[in-house]
């Protein structure tokens, strides 16, 4: 019961923090839509071509937009000592990583989920593909949050190179994009491809608390 109260208060804090920094979430969404417009203008008025490239564009931009927020994944809480307070309040570093990953998914990725239908209209993506895109993004974005947790905790130890985290996420997100795009383009293989994505999610979810927790511990030790 005590641990449940602590988890609830953790998310209350995250909610308040994200609400006060709502402009950051909004900036991410604006970046996403402005980039879509740039793609549309650069491809030209050919509806068919936009429709074919649409899913790839959405996924690439979702990836880029979510890496924009990685800088703040742990950095603020590390700088003001809140990571340490959470640890002293009874959370292991690994458990903090799990809680922060869910928080990132909830406050950064879910707003993108809501934006996907509008993006589909803009990019002339058919309604029957929308549901597959939505499913693949739910699973894929949670994988990205796990990868984001690992890379940003590594960044805390390497304060000089903030781009490293984004590069790591982008490299490891290649298989996620391959299978996610596969789900949309090969609808008959939906079950097998979504199972592979779930498999990747389970592996990354299992590695995340271990890897991120270790990086958090080392960065606090060396701070």
């Amino acid at each position: 019961m005590i641990i449940l109260n602590k988890i609830i208060s953790f998310y209350y804090r995250e909610y308040k923090l994200n609400l006060s920094g709502f402009q950051d979430i909004l900036t991410n969404i604006i970046f996403f839509f402005v980039s879509i417009f740039i793609f549309i203008f650069s491809i030209g008025p050919d509806k068919e071509k936009i429709s074919v490239l649409g899913v790839g564009i959405v996924w690439t931009l979702l990836l880029l937009s979510s890496t924009l927020s990685l800088r703040k994944f742990y950095q603020d809480d590390f700088d003001n000592g809140n990571l340490l307070i959470m640890h002293l309040n009874g959370f292991s570093f690994g458990f903090i990583a799990i809680l922060k990953t869910f928080s990132h998914f909830l406050f950064v990725q879910v707003p993108f989920l809501i934006s996907i239908p509008i993006a589909c209209v803009l990019l002339n993506i058919s309604n029957d593909k929308l549901i597959y895109l939505f499913f693949s993004f739910v699973v894929g974005s949670f994988i990205l949050s796990c990868l984001g947790s690992i890379s940003s905790s590594m960044n805390l130890m390497n304060q000089r190179n903030f781009l490293l985290g984004s590069v790591i996420v982008m490299i490891f997100s290649v298989p996620i994009i391959i299978f996610s795009i596969g789900i949309i383009n090969m609808e008959e293989n939906f079950n097998s491809l979504i199972s592979i994505l779930f498999g990747i999610l389970l592996i990354v979810f299992a590695i995340n608390p271990w890897a991120s927790g270790l990086c958090l511990k080392l960065s606090i030790e060396n701070n």
Binding site: Y12, S20, I85
Partner: peptide
Amino acid sequence: FIADKTSSLSKLSVHENINIWKKIFS
């Protein structure tokens, strides 16, 4: 433990910070 840096959340008010601490530490 109170470190030499402040852990209060700078974007929130004093009242909101106190409320968060009250919840976190039950």
